[in-house]
Design a binder for these strands. Structure first.
Lengths: 217, 217
DNA sequence: GTTTGGTTTTAGGAGGGTCTAATTTTTATT
DNA sequence: AATAAAAATTAGACCCTCCTAAAACCAAAC
């Protein structure tokens, strides 16, 4: 079994690796975990020794298959606990993260199995993030156009339909990017514009045209 | 906040203190926690420094009011989680202890409040042990040890005095559980063993030792 | 009151995870 | 290609929890 600290590193490494597709640097982890870079180097060595990551000196780490499996299992636990808290304990979606950070380190296969069952084998957590199954398989995410989205649901930006510089700059200005999560608060009948609320509770309005250029899931 | 290790010491100290009413010795803790006596001394000092216990050199420790409060809070969490697992996740009462040992260290007041609410503010856990309320108050228990029971009377199991895995497994094998009802048919003068008859007319014999570990009412 | 045996404490050390300061390596700039 | 800046690593230290070995203490028996 891995220590709590190892699990946290591994999870962070996995997430950064998935979003960049490349080696994860010492500083990136140090920043995320709010610890000193020197400590990160130490842990990189330790994880490499356990074959959880591939470590190339001064070039960062990549998770191995084994490391990915562990990370996905933690992610699964995290997201199931979040779902539990929202669905069964009436937490709101923005209250659950911290507690789930603790709960994700509970070691018990059967507990997670039963929790999954209690929740009806959910495929997505309250933030709209996919929940890996017990084999580490992520549910297929089928993207739709934001203009076809429903009010009151969480979405995550997975891509753009129009790849123009102008559009991307516009998104950037709004604070939207690949991976941004938000809830659709209102759909204006009159012009098809949408009011969104981001995870940081900032609100913004998107025109129908812009919404028709965004893939979300 | 206290470390996981401190919490475990404190919980063990509290339990031993409650059952003996006297100072808890270094070796008693060492045995319970399966660690070296020297380590226990270290921790006694540390806990004393935090005013969680009263430490008299070479005479052991007693929990202070502060220490008791912390211990009761951990106990509360432990028992609520056990109740949750049995009531909501269909665990049997002898499967829950180990996982609850982990869950009891999750720090979140609101989580425990909500869990309590979800379970309908239970007063007893699946082993029949009382669950402290959020102020650390225990519900009144009127249980006696089976070894003090009278022949010819019906009793119901409300809890166990010894919470070891071995003992719980043994009970399970005999077909005894929290809530099992039986009549004491005979008390063997010679060795203090007891012959019981369950509701389903099955008969079984319990040694004096086993009887002294069962709470009934 | 001395001896003996068990209990408790002290002393010193080890591993995990962190830090700071100094050094080395890599990357970017000119 | 040389140099400056940034990133990463090493070295040495600290705290936590645990250990072993040795010393000190206590309690009970002679």
């Amino acid at each position: 079994m891995h220590t709590l600290t190892e699990e946290n590193y591994l999870k962070t490494i996995y997430r950064l690796f998935e979003s960049s597709g490349d080696s994860v640097s010492t500083t990136a982890i140090a920043e995320r975990l709010q610890i000193n870079a020197a400590s990160v180097t130490d842990m990189f060595k330790k994880l490499a020794q356990q074959k959880l990551v591939l470590y190339e000196k001064s070039r960062g780490v990549k998770p191995t298959e084994k490391g990915k499996k562990v990370a996905l299992h933690i992610l699964r636990k995290h997201r199931l606990w979040e779902t539990f808290m929202v669905e069964k304990l009436r937490f709101s979606w923005d209250e659950v993260h911290e507690v789930a950070e603790q709960l994700e380190h509970i070691h018990s296969e059967i507990l997670i199995e039963r929790l999954d069952q209690l929740l009806g084998y959910p495929k997505f957590d309250p933030h709209g993030d996919p929940i890996p199954d017990k084999n580490g398989k992520m549910p297929l995410v089928t993207a739709i156009l934001l203009s076809d989205a429903k009010v009151g649901t969480w979405y995550k930006i997975t891509g753009v339909a129009e790849n123009s510089d102008r559009f991307l700059k516009y998104l950037n200005k709004l604070g939207l990017a690949q991976g941004s999560s938000f809830i659709v608060q209102e759909l204006e009948e009159y012009d098809g514009s949408m009011k969104l609320m981001l995870q940081d509770k900032n609100e913004l309005v998107l025109s129908k045209e812009a919404a028709a250029n965004l893939y979300v899931s």
